[in-house]
Design a protein around this nucleic acid. Structure first.
Lengths: 162, 162
DNA sequence: TTGATGATGAATGTCATTTTCAATAAGGAG
DNA sequence: CTCCTTATTGAAAATGACATTCATCATCAA
């Protein structure tokens, strides 16, 4: 249940530096729109969608950033390790969450109520590495999502059946 | 590299029976279009898309089945355990593969060339169950995909850098 | 056999994401 | 600092996966 405390100012700066590094490596140019998107994204505590990002840039009266720009920026944020794409929340589309300076974790989702629990298993991480090595692969990432029903949803089901 | 040998005639019949059971349970009616889609899907050895399925029903001169019907049928095939949805193959959309009478496995994908390796780890499955229990969940499914670079792609990269 | 209702094909709609294009801005060369 | 090349952006249109609509058609229980 541990809440991911947000980055402090210094953390934000390190994140921007990581973004700039990727931008430079790719021969792209610096731009304020990209950093605006990055900052808006990094400030989120939980899971958010592209639409959330676009909306937030308006709500906070920051300069507006268009959806197409957000979409164009996202791959860079992923590559810079600021965000990670996740697939929880049933059919509600693609979500993102901060990954920068945050310990890795996977998700356990309740198919009944949509509750999301984060978990981490060093044992699973280790086996993943072993599997990759056994096939001659070097891992660059993974996605791992468990689906199930939580206690509350199972009890709800029992009632309605009674 | 073990190829998933396709179902024999008896297997196909058992699969259709499983589909019919789900259809009946939901108070739906039998239909030949649904079984045509099911058979076309079960005959695939590897991964395929909805579009593949639609196309194949034409190629093989089976009666045509429209895309909308295929889309309507897919959830039933998933629920009946005939197919499983997978998310490999970079951004190429949603893929499916046969799950009926086939051992469970996860995927290891090369981000360079798109090669897909199937793997299974009973140890990971066990930890998954433990994690679920520790949060009061009962598992209904999971998706697990590892991404990395294969030996060939790493060597290719080394050459081009030399 | 037949009536009630589910299923299908075909067309159309929806919604997220991508692409296009003209205008703008970054940043290296001079 | 100014110019020139080229990336970036906003705005709009295009794409593409999937859902929905609706007029037939098919299924099946009575």
């Amino acid at each position: 249940m541990k809440k991911p405390h947000s980055l402090d100012e210094a953390g934000l700066q390190r994140a921007l530096a990581a973004l700039r590094r990727v931008v430079r490596e790719k021969g792209l140019r610096a731009s304020s729109a990209r950093e605006r998107v990055a900052l808006a994204a990094l400030r989120y505590g939980g899971h958010f969608t592209v639409e959330d990002l676009v909306r937030r840039s308006k709500d906070e009266r920051l300069e507006e950033t268009h959806a197409s720009t957000v979409y164009r920026t996202l791959p860079l944020l992923l590559e810079a390790g600021l965000l990670e794409e996740i697939r929880v929340h049933r059919d509600e589309g693609t979500f993102y969450e901060r990954a920068f300076e945050r310990e890795h974790h996977d998700h356990l989702v309740c198919v009944g109520c949509g509750a999301v629990v984060e978990f981490h298993s060093e044992e699973i991480e280790e086996v993943q590495r072993e599997v990759a090595v056994s096939f001659g692969f070097v891992l660059t990432g993974h996605s791992h999502e468990l689906r199930g029903t939580c206690t509350a949803c199972r009890e709800r089901g029992r009632e309605s059946r009674a």
